[in-house]
Amino acid sequence: MNRLLKNLLAAGCLLGGTTLGFSQTKSENPGAELTVSYLRGTQKLHDLQASPMMYFTDYNGINLDYKRMKGRNRWEFGSEAKTGSMIAPALGTREFQFEEGGEGFLLIPTQYFGEIRAGYQRGLIQNEKQETYLGVNLRNQIHYADGLAMNTWAMNLLGLGVRYTHLLKLGTKHQILGDFQLPIFAFVARMPFSNVVSQPETSQFKSFMSGSTFTSVNQFQQPEIRIAYRYRLARRSSLELGYSYDWLHYSKPQTIKKSNHELGLSWVYHFQFSPAK
């Protein structure tokens, strides 16, 4: 009898705790979330300013993202850093020498790239099944590689674009997220037609950036889509698996086309809870 009472008490506590936990999940919304992601992707680059051949970069990276949600408003600030080796599949691995009879070296450039971003979105639909948001995103992406065709290769893209996000809620633990963004205006800095950046009494970075040109979506296209699945592990944390694809096209001083396929595994920390309305 004593044992039955104990079991009943334990089951009751468990049920109560679960109910409490469930009700907390339902009745509280996180006001902010911090996301840490591991990124793994492939970049395909065809930049005629650098080479007539395509270069593939299998890269690893990390992403840090902070999101603040209040009512219909969402603010987001994030940054990414990635790196990988660039290989031209049609050329294979090439060994050069500085001079005949000299020591050989493999020409495998390493690319470093990353971004910082800030965005604002306003909720269009917010109910128990789905949420949709529309807003703007300001993003700066920088790329640098030393040794691409034995040259320094660099590109900086500062873009202001529209961003649409669609969130499907499948119960309390599962979410599907779709995201689309498109820069409308951009400042683009690329290596000049001569492939030389040299100005007296000016750093090369400053000279390079001073060559930025303003452009818009009719000349510069970089759409990006992302889909992700999120699983709520606990009140304060979720796990997310996402896939994103972006494609870039710009024609000055010579045509560049670039695409990225990227997988991201993220841990999301939810905080600043407030009661649901």
Binding site: A50, S51, P52, M53, A88, L91, G92, R94, F96, A149, M150, N151, F193, S194, N195, V196
Partner: peptide, 16 residues
């Protein structure tokens, strides 16, 4: 600066 040829050779030239 250097330019890459389709066959993987590299050539340097004066652009200034």
């Amino acid at each position: 600066p250097k330019w890459e040829l389709p066959n993987g050779w590299i050539v340097a030239m004066s652009t200034g």
